[in-house]
Design a protein around this nucleic acid. Structure first.
Lengths: 115, 115
DNA sequence: CTGTATCCGAGAAGATACTG
DNA sequence: CAGTATCTTCTCGGATACAG
């Protein structure tokens, strides 16, 4: 993260910008998810990108990770309190996308986790 | 623009994603601006990027451009009605950035056009 | 299942010079 | 002032293979 910005929006972009971060956050906004679930819900992301972005979101304090080995390897990701403060932003992005899709006749789906 | 998305947020990103588009839109949200003003308000953008992004925003129907030759060359950019629908999203990004800056002690400025 | 490590390419962006 | 045109650089992300 930089130390100076010419606009608050610039700072926001630094934290949630890029192709994947808000997609991950938008999913976690609905509730905790496992690594594999995230991968299925965001079909075009590669494992490398998913892991990389999750690590960055953790480092930035937006996402919490808890892993257990017992009885088997299992990792859950969820929004931290700081991450929850993004909820209105994420909702705004979601709502606008939906409205825009209706105006332009584009197809959007939003598959729920469904395990 | 693609024809299918797995999440409405994905569509939104397709339109306003990338490093510069929302910065330009956030500025235009405050009112019409000339090319040179935008360049000064977004100091790190290159002329090439500014022109390129403005053309894309025009093509996507978010920004309107009106140029006059008389009495001298002058071009104004402003949000279209469709672009105005992004106002809540832009405001959300702005507000979150400002709040995050306060929490993390980072410096943000938001210079008004001032000509 | 939950990841790491490497290698590679495309596209985004930067620098600079030039134009009506 | 408001751009174009080129050329180069570099970051992001894709593909694939491997590991606890």
């Amino acid at each position: 993260m930089r130390q100076r910005y010419h606009c608050p929006v610039e700072l926001t972009l630094d934290v949630v910008g890029g192709r994947w971060r808000v997609l991950i956050l938008a999913r976690l906004k609905e509730g905790p998810l496992r690594y594999g679930q995230l991968r299925r819900l965001i079909p075009d992301i590669s494992e490398k990108m998913l892991t990389q972005r999750l690590r960055e979101l953790e480092a930035d304090g937006l996402v919490l990770r808890d892993a257990t080995q017992e009885p088997e390897l299992r990792t859950d990701y969820r929004l931290s309190p700081e991450g929850e403060t993004l909820a209105p932003v994420l909702q705004g992005l979601y709502d606008w996308g939906l409205a825009r899709a209706e105006r332009t006749g584009v197809d959007v789906s939003f598959t729920p986790p469904g395990d």
